[in-house]
């Protein structure tokens, strides 16, 4: 089966996020009041071939831990969906 994977990489709680803080500080000057808690991460999209969703998730979790995130400062949220059959 083919799965579409979206990995959202985020800074772990407690790790300073200078990009998020800078964006948040700029918001009032642009007239956006009431916006807070800005966090900047990245999203990585790819497809995975695997026997089933559990196998796909195991592969992507391993990929996240060993390569796509640095566990010292980042964690990730994985979303898997079965790709539409062409």
């Amino acid at each position: 089966m083919t799965f579409d994977a979206v990995v959202e990489v985020r800074l772990r709680p407690g790790i300073a996020d200078p990009q998020g803080a800078t964006i948040e500080r700029a918001l009032p000057a642009l007239g956006f009041d009431g916006v807070g808690g800005v966090q900047v991460g990245k999203s990585i999209r790819f497809t995975v071939e695997a026997a089933d969703e559990a196998a796909a998730r195991s592969l992507v979790d391993d990929l996240c831990h060993r390569f796509l995130t640095n566990p010292v400062i980042e964690d990730s949220v994985v979303t898997l969906t079965a790709a539409a059959v062409a």
Binding site: I15, A16, P18, Q19, N70, V72, I73
Partner: peptide, 17 residues
């Protein structure tokens, strides 16, 4: 060296960007 786990920790973007 930190990414290779030869040294602990990580290097982040500078404070103040």
């Amino acid at each position: 060296l930190t990414e290779a786990h030869l040294l602990p920790g990580a290097l982040q973007k500078n404070a103040g960007l």
